[in-house]
């Protein structure tokens, strides 16, 4: 299910005095099985961009091609496309509506026309995939904790068996353990089921340790599209885009400025620890 954006522009309220270009000349591809992060300041165009990927928004100019289908083509069936490209919005738990967790998660596959016998199986599988116990099925989703509600909402998208999963800030507002649990489940889904994952995040730490490829968007344009290691080597320009670097990288930057022999970027704390220990030993030998 490859996705390709070519020369994509998107203008909100076109032709009115409030006209605003949200995306300008975007060229971007997502290949099967990739784990891609998207970062950018509020208002940079990230959310507009991800809504292009399942046809919720269509480009003002240029083309978006999902698995060979051009979303702006006449008579294109966007319904099937939306089942294949699952989009989990910010604060997805606000979209829960059913009386039980099971009914909520079953809603997507029911609308897809999945046979009843298979739905129960999909619901169970989706709940297990997000790490929720099956006992929870008959409970009201509204009586669960925030982190559990978020996971029910993600399970509702997974139950449609999407080939691409897009998550817009899946951990906003969750406590540290809730964040870790959701992210490690997403990583497992990616590894075990090979689904393409596109993660929109404000957390530099999260994208640094999770994604293989990082897209940085600013003012509706792509400013970087590279590995996290390459992107986070540009700390000062990231700051001008309203972003930053993971704190592990920030510590190394400060040490480097004081003459320590450390690399520029560390994606995880463990990587920073090893680099600092090495540099410390080196300094002691020289002293």
């Amino acid at each position: 299910m490859p996705i390709k954006l070519e020369q994509v522009d998107f203008v909100y309220a076109g032709g009115s005095p409030f006209e605003r270009a949200a995306l300008k000349g975007i060229n971007l591809s997502f290949l099967d099985g990739e784990f891609v992060g998207i970062i950018g300041q509020t208002g940079s165009g990230k959310s507009t961009l991800v809504q292009m990927l399942n046809g919720l928004l269509k480009p003002t100019r240029g083309t978006v091609t999902v698995n060979g289908l051009v979303t702006t083509a006449k008579g294109v069936k966007l319904k099937s496309l939306r089942q294949e490209v699952g989009l989990v919005f910010q604060f997805a738990e606000y979209q829960l509506f059913a009386e039980t967790v099971a009914a909520d998660v079953a809603f997507g596959p029911e609308n897809q026309g999945v046979p009843a016998s298979e739905i129960a199986e999909r619901v169970d599988q989706a709940l297990l995939n997000v790490g929720l116990p099956l006992e929870i099925k008959e409970r009201s989703p509204f009586e669960l904790s925030g982190g559990q509600m978020r996971r029910v909402a993600i399970a509702g998208v997974l139950a449609m068996n999407p080939k691409v999963l897009i998550l817009d800030e899946p951990t906003a507002g969750l406590d540290p353990r809730g964040r870790d649990e959701i992210l490690s489940r997403i990583r497992e889904l990616h590894r075990q089921r090979g689904i393409t994952v596109i993660l929109v995040s404000h957390s530099m730490e999260d994208v640094a340790r999770l994604v293989d490829r990082l897209v940085v968007i600013h003012g509706g344009q792509i400013v970087y599209d590279a590995t996290p290691r390459e992107v986070f080597a540009h700390g000062s320009s990231l700051k001008t885009y309203g972003l930053g670097v993971p704190q592990a990288t920030e510590v190394l930057g400060l040490l480097k400025a004081k003459g320590w022999a450390v690399p520029e970027v560390a994606l995880t704390l463990d990587e920073a620890r090893q680099a600092i220990v090495r540099a410390y030993q080196l300094r002691r030998e020289l002293a």
């Binding site: 300041q41 509020t42 906003a172 507002g173 404000h202």
Partner: peptide, 11 residues
């Protein structure tokens, strides 16, 4: 009350 939860790093 979690007034920064929805904001980007600069915000």
């Amino acid at each position: 009350d979690e007034a920064t939860a929805m904001l980007d790093p600069i915000g």
